[in-house]
């Protein structure tokens, strides 16, 4: 009996989720060099022209790799530069699902022209921005900071609870866990990513523990947002189970109120669960992105430079913060991830 009830509830949930799961995809229009496609199964395969990159998937380029993608709706161009990671994610704000195009590492240029419907959000692991008819390049630094440079159109960037508006030929840098810095004139000349990132590495090496603390703050922000949603999701799950049971009782009794009950009570609960699930995943994947491409890089830099002097004070201080971040990550984020995410 329990199994039958679960099956009925499961079928309802699936039917309700299907329209919500329809997501924005990106089609590969060009590749050169070595470009990997981390697919939904978590396997990294070679990205080929014509391949679709779906929500939750990412593109990883090697030092000789370049890729260009187009969103399947509207006119757009997403150029993933060498040694970069581009992720296609989604979140829901006010019940409206939004595609988020993220430069998790390296640099990604994006151009959008008159998209049908809502325009996507763009960002990195530490900030997110709304765009309007925009050409923007996002540089993600090894210390978790982001440089967003606008060539045309308008961008509204949010980070650390503050927003900044950027127009053509303007740029802004955002440190992890902090409000955006002062915007500055940017004359459209492409930034030499390697040189810029060398500067980020120098900043990090000057104060490794301090830099790691900023990353911890950013990750904690995502984690707290995620943790706040978990009890809500559990409550909605319980409400849904009860509503599905009631709907089944009405249906079995051929009660005429069953259709109204389905539309007015059951489906909204399904949508609420889908929204919560989407946002929990978004926050969990955002933490994973910072942990992998920022904290992981920081650890590698420190450990490989101090193999021969493990007693170095800066190194010890960094390891203390690092261990703290990893412990919190293992306890709260890993349970929300699956092997395919790693």
């Amino acid at each position: 009996m329990k199994a039958r009830r679960l099956t009925f509830a499961g079928a309802l949930l699936f039917a309700g989720l299907c329209p919500l799961l329809q997501a924005q995809n990106a089609e590969t229009v060009f590749t050169s060099g070595t470009v990997g496609h981390k697919n939904a199964a978590g396997k990294t395969v070679s990205l080929e022209i014509g391949d679709l990159v779906r929500t939750g998937e990412s593109v990883i380029t090697k030092s000789d790799g370049n890729a260009e993608l187009q969103l399947t709706t509207g006119k757009s161009s997403i150029k993933v530069k060498p040694n970069s990671v581009f992720m296609l994610t989604e979140r829901s704000v006010g019940g409206v699902k939004q595609t988020v195009l993220q430069a998790a590492a390296g640099s990604v240029s994006m151009k959008f022209e008159k998209l049908a419907g809502k325009e996507p959000l763009v960002g990195s692991s530490n900030c997110v921005a709304g765009v309007r008819g925009t050409e923007v390049t996002i540089y993600a630094g090894m210390d978790g900071s982001t440089l967003m440079a606008v060539s045309s159109g308008a961008v509204e960037l949010e980070s650390g609870g503050s927003t900044v508006s950027l127009s053509a030929n303007e740029a802004v840098e955002v440190k992890p866990g902090q409000a955006p810095g002062q915007k500055f004139a940017w004359l459209g000349k492409e930034v030499d990513y390697s040189k810029w990132n060398e500067g980020k590495l120098a900043d990090f090496l000057a104060d490794p523990a301090g830099s790691a603390r900023k990353v911890r703050e950013q990750m904690a922000g995502y984690r707290d947002s995620m943790l706040a949603l978990l009890p809500e999701l559990e409550k909605k799950k319980a409400d849904f189970a009860a509503a599905a049971a009631e709907l089944k009782r009405l249906s079995d009794a051929k009660d005429q109120r069953s259709e109204d009950y389905r539309a007015g009570t059951v489906f909204p609960l399904i949508q609420d669960q889908a929204t919560l699930f989407l946002n929990i995943r978004y926050y969990a994947l955002s933490v994973l992105s910072m942990r992998r491409f920022v904290l992981g890089d920081m650890y590698m830099q420190m450990r490989s430079r101090h193999m021969l002097d493990p007693g170095n004070q800066q190194y010890s201080d960094f390891l203390g913060v690092y261990a703290d971040i990893v412990t919190a990550y293992e306890a709260s984020i890993v349970p929300q991830l699956v092997d395919a995410d790693i």
Binding site: I60, V85, F293, G296, D297, Y299, M300, Q301, V326, I342
Partner: peptide, 16 residues
Amino acid sequence: IFDAEILLLQAEVASL
């Protein structure tokens, strides 16, 4: 894999 850190970028491995 370097200790318990997964390095997914070629540039990171080269840097190591």
